[in-house]
Each structure stands twice: as C-alpha cells, then as structure tokens.
C-alpha cells in the first residue's frame, strides 16, 4: 500500500501545483477541486474518514463552488508575477528550505500520545461511540461552539458586504430533472450522515455540507421562491445554530452545574439534538455564503 500512498501524494502535489500555476482560472479551479478529492482520499488512507467526508464536501465542493463564482465575477488573471525569474527562483529556494525544515521537525517527533487512551477511557461516558464525534461534541465541544461562531461571523460579514446575488440562469433542460433527483437524495444522505455520526464517520458538518449542496442545486436551477423572505429565513436559520449551541451550553450548566456538561445518561440525546440543529444551520450558512444576500432596496 506504500506504493499507492506515494502515487496518491504525487498526484496530489501535481494537482496542487497545477491549481496554483495554470493561467486559466477554470482549469486552475478544476485542478484545485481534484486536489481536494485526492486529499479526501489521503485522509481515508490516514484512517480519518470523518475528515475525508468533510474535505470532499466542504474543502473541495463548497470551496470550489465559491472560487468558480468569484472567478466568473473577477475575470481573468491580470498582471505578471512579482519580480522576475530570479525572484521566483529565490522564493522557490526559500520555500523549499522551509518545507524541508518542516519535514525534519514533524517527522523527527515521536513524543508521547496522551489523547487516544484518554478518549478511549472516557468514550462510554461521552454518549457516542464515534471517537471524533465524542471529541467534537463533548470533550472539546467548546472548540466546536466557537467554530460555529466563526461561521456566524463570516455570514454576518458576507451579508454586510453584500456581493452581487447569484442569479440562476437557464442551465439547460436537464437541470430540472437533475435537481428533482439531487435534492431529495441530498436530504436523505444528510439525514443518514447526521444520524450515523454518533457511531460511524459522519456528523453535523458533513451532513450540513451535503444539504447545502442540495439547496444550491435548487437555487441554481431557479426552482423555488428565492425571494427576500426566503433569504431572510435562511439568514435566521444560519444564525440560529450558534444561539442553540450557546443556549444548550448554558442550559446544561443549569442542570449539571458544568458549562457544556450534558446530564449523565442523556448525553446522546443532547448531542444528536445539537447536531441536528447545527446541520440545518450549517447548510443555510454555507448556502448563503455562496449566494450572498438579497440586495436591500436602498442600494
């Protein structure tokens, strides 16, 4: 399998290099998305399927869509590189040196690993059997809560900046039937990912991203009322995730005396409930980050 890993990482580096050097925007973004999928494969090889799912859905999918949207609006690459050939070579040597130093620093470590035994020992008390979900929603739920806050602030920022809304355009006759298949499928897959996150790879972020993909298919196909009221509802839904999570953290403190300390025996119910609301909120947020807000009348 080492041979597979070597081929995979070589392909990955080649795609990343293409993404960062091709002068055609669309080709560069395509290479970036392929690199993202190869990275998802690498995560599977590194025994991290939860991260792989998130990378494929968010890192490659949503980010790629965002880049495509912006590329279309900003236009082709203008202006040459900074400096000439010699500057580029100097930068390459510097970056190469740094990357060699990094490799030495990381590969040379074999320190103690206190987390896996601690996670294993407390997994039963966490309420879920997927260790990554246990870390994300219980042991280190505070990180995840703040991460939801990052999403909410990004949403507020994008709404404030108000980039031009994405206008659905006729994508051909196949889009409608395509959306009719994709959207229910996305909802099913999202529900499944959310539920199985407790025991197997999956969870709120992956489910939210899949759901966002389904919603975007709707928006792009021009189906459904994309009016101001819908966007406003999506905004409220996007923000609600943070409010629910903070509210749950405080409510748990009211019940158990510990901030984010779920009541004993009911951990799984709390985690699933929080994750379910986060899924909807993440889907709405990712969707709005892509489509942008509806411009207000006074602009």
């Amino acid at each position: 399998m080492i041979a597979f890993d070597i081929v995979l990482t070589l392909g990955l580096l080649a795609c990343a290099a293409m993404a960062l050097t091709l002068r055609d925007r669309t080709a560069s973004i395509a290479a970036f998305v392929v690199a993202g999928l190869l990275i998802a494969l690498s995560w599977v090889r590194l025994a991290a399927p939860d991260v792989a799912l998130a990378e494929a859905a968010i890192g490659a999918g949503v980010t790629g869509a965002l880049f495509l949207r912006s590329a279309r609006r900003i236009g082709p690459i203008t202006g040459g590189p900074v400096g000439g050939m010699s500057a580029s070579i100097a930068a390459a040597l510097g970056a190469g040196g740094l990357s060699a130093a990094l490799f030495w620093a990381f590969a040379g470590t074999s320190g103690p690993v206190p987390y896996p035994p601690l996670v294993a020992a407390n997994l039963e008390a966490s309420g879920v059997t997927n260790p990554v979900t246990a870390v994300l929603l219980n042991f280190r739920a505070w990180d995840t809560l703040l991460e939801i806050a990052v999403l909410a602030v990004a949403l507020a920022l994008v709404v404030m900046l108000g980039p031009a809304p994405v206008v659905p355009r006729a994508l051909g006759e196949l889009v409608l039937p395509f959306a009719r298949i994709v959207v229910p499928l996305a909802i099913l897959v999202a529900g499944h990912l959310l539920w199985q996150g407790a025991t197997a790879p999956g969870g709120a972020f992956q489910a939210g991203a899949v759901l966002a993909g389904g919603m975007l298919a709707l928006v792009l196909a021009g189906i459904g009322p994309a009016g101001e009221r819908i966007v406003r509802g999506a905004l409220l839904l996007g923000l609600a995730g943070l409010a629910v999570f903070v509210g749950a953290a405080l409510a748990a403190e009211g019940l158990t005396g510990r901030f984010l300390g779920y009541p004993a025996g009911a951990e799984k119910a709390w985690i699933i409930a929080i994750e379910a609301s986060l899924t909807l909120s993440i889907a709405a947020t990712l969707c709005l980050l892509f489509t942008g807000p509806v411009r207000r009348p006074h602009q």
């Binding site: 806050a149 909410a152 923000l239 609600a240 943070l242 409010a243 903070v246 953290a249």
Partner: peptide, 17 residues
C-alpha cells in the same frame, strides 16, 4: 466566566438577526 463568554455571542446573534 461562562456567562461572560456566552452573553456577547448570544447578543451578537440577536443583533445580526
């Protein structure tokens, strides 16, 4: 401590909404 980190975040959600 838990109130002082929660309250501004909750208020941020309300004011953004």
């Amino acid at each position: 401590a838990s109130l002082i980190v929660s309250l501004p975040l909750l208020a941020a959600v309300v004011t953004a909404a």
